[in-house]
Amino acid sequence: MNQHFRPEPAALAEARARPAPPRLAAENVTIGYDRATIAEHLSVAIPDRSFTVIVGPNACGKSTLLRALSRLLRPKSGRVVLDGRDIASYPAKDVARRLGLLPQTSIAPEGITVADLVARGRYPHQKLIRQWSAEDEAAVVEAMAATGITTLSTRLVEELSGGQRQRVWVAMVLAQQTPLLLLDEPTTFLDIAHQIELLDLLHALNAAGHTIVAVLHDLNHACRYASHLIAMRTGASSRKAGPPTS
């Protein structure tokens, strides 16, 4: 996957040196489902252009936090801020043009080809009148190239291996062309070689300018790849730490 590491343009390196205000942050949120509260008064900021990894034991609320950050879950109190405004105040499609999410479980429709599934990521960019444009086509081709699935484009998704399938899903989120990419345990069902392959891919995307937020189980992976680490523990508290920026 090393071919994805492109040299950084000078302007990008300069932008990196200046600390930008975070585009996505949770401010004093209390999150949970129905009666169960999973985390209280939690504040986290996702540094722009970072590779943020959320770690913690099972059932401590990692995925719940990610769901709140991506507006899948409305916080019981507090708010999630995207580009300076409460994320709940945006139209749904507007959020989907800024922030892409790979949920833990997604269902590939039966009989769908790789290219067709990736193309579904273009939905938030399409309008009623102009349904499929050259821009959409280019985004799909680019997303498949970045994830190394171009040769699979006419294959059926259900025929692929787990590692290939996960790359197809990442390609779908990439085709959405959002600066922010959120991934909920993207490596869980993959063997170790495919886990590393996927993390290398995310690293390359991060180097290309995407802000990545991923929930990971493996602490070694988290420390190896993250530029910003959010550690959660049961009991509704969180510590943030950034590893050395080498």
Binding site: L72, P103, I107, Y123
Partner: peptide, 22 residues
């Protein structure tokens, strides 16, 4: 009009919502 968002539903509620559907 509703057929396009309907197709996004085939991937599950979370994926549909992440792609900008209520």
């Amino acid at each position: 009009l509703v057929s396009r968002p309907m197709r996004q539903f085939e991937m599950g509620d979370d994926a549909a919502r992440a792609l900008g559907i209520d």
